[in-house]
Simulated assay, not measured.
Amino acid sequence: MSGARRSGSRNSRRNGTDGERAEAAEAYRRSVARLQHTAYRNLRQTIAYATIFVAVLATWMILIGAATPASFPWYAASVLGGVLGLATYAVREPRPRRYILAGAVVLAVVGVTGIFLVD
């Protein structure tokens, strides 16, 4: 084997101008920013869907009569958490949407925990 490097080898370095490197770095930053934005949006939607699902189950349990007077406030908290989870789709500003989503999660968790502790 010869010790000479070919032009297409992995170790060859692409020589570019500073402008090309800066443009490539900016394109990379934009790509990462889009990925982070999409990941956050998917996480927010998944959390909102989970609170809405808990609210649907709690509403169903209330409608079929499974809620006792002792457990009704916990079911109501779960339903309210789902309503807040649904409200995140109406709010467009990121900061209030984050607070509404946090409230939805807290209410859903408190409601489910209370339901299990009472029953």
Rank of each mutant, 00 (worst) to 15 (best):
A4T: 15
H37N: 09
N42V: 12
L80Q: 01
I100K: 00
A102V: 09
Q45N: 15
V83I: 14
V109N: 03
V56F: 10
A55R: 02
G16W: 06
M1Y: 06
S7G: 07
E23C: 04
L35D: 09
P73V: 01
A48E: 12
S78H: 03
R14F: 11
G16E: 12
V83G: 09
L35H: 13
A87L: 11
V106T: 14
G81Q: 09
A108E: 02
I52Q: 08
A108G: 04
T59N: 01
R97I: 03
R41E: 14
P94M: 03
A33Y: 13
F53H: 02
W60T: 04
S7K: 13
A76C: 10
T38F: 15
G82C: 07
T68L: 02
A58L: 07
A104V: 05
A102S: 11
N15A: 08
I64L: 00
E20D: 13
R41N: 12
I47Q: 05
V32M: 13
Y28T: 14
A76Y: 07
R14E: 08
A33N: 15
N11L: 12
R21M: 05
V32Y: 12
Q45P: 00
T59R: 01
R92G: 06
V83D: 03
V105L: 03
A48W: 06
Y49D: 11
L86Q: 06
A102Q: 10
A22C: 09
S71L: 08
P73W: 02
R29V: 07
Y49W: 14
E93M: 07
A108C: 06
L35Y: 11
D119L: 08
V32R: 15
D18I: 11
L107C: 11
T46M: 15
L43D: 03
A76K: 05
I52K: 02
R34A: 15
L84G: 00
A77K: 04
H37R: 15
G114W: 06
R29W: 10
F53Q: 01
E20N: 10
R14W: 09
A104R: 00
P94Q: 04
A4W: 05
R95E: 12
T51L: 04
W60H: 07
D18L: 07
A24W: 06
A58I: 05
L117Y: 07
L57H: 08
N11M: 07
A90K: 08
Y75I: 01
S2L: 10
V105D: 00
A39N: 08
Y49A: 05
S31E: 15
V56G: 06
H37M: 03
I115F: 03
V110F: 08
L57D: 05
A70L: 11
G3T: 09
L35M: 14
A39T: 12
I100F: 03
A67K: 02
R44H: 15
T17K: 07
G65L: 04
R13Q: 12
E93Y: 09
R5C: 04
T68I: 03
G19N: 09
S7A: 11
P69N: 06
G82L: 06
I64D: 00
L57V: 10
D18A: 09
Y99V: 01
T68C: 01
I64F: 01
E20S: 14
I62N: 04
V110Y: 08
R29L: 13
R10G: 08
F72I: 04
E26S: 10
Y75F: 13
M61G: 00
W74Y: 14
N11Q: 11
L107E: 05
S7M: 12
T51P: 04
E26I: 09
E93P: 00
T113R: 04
Y75P: 03
L35W: 13
R14Q: 10
L43A: 14
A66Q: 06
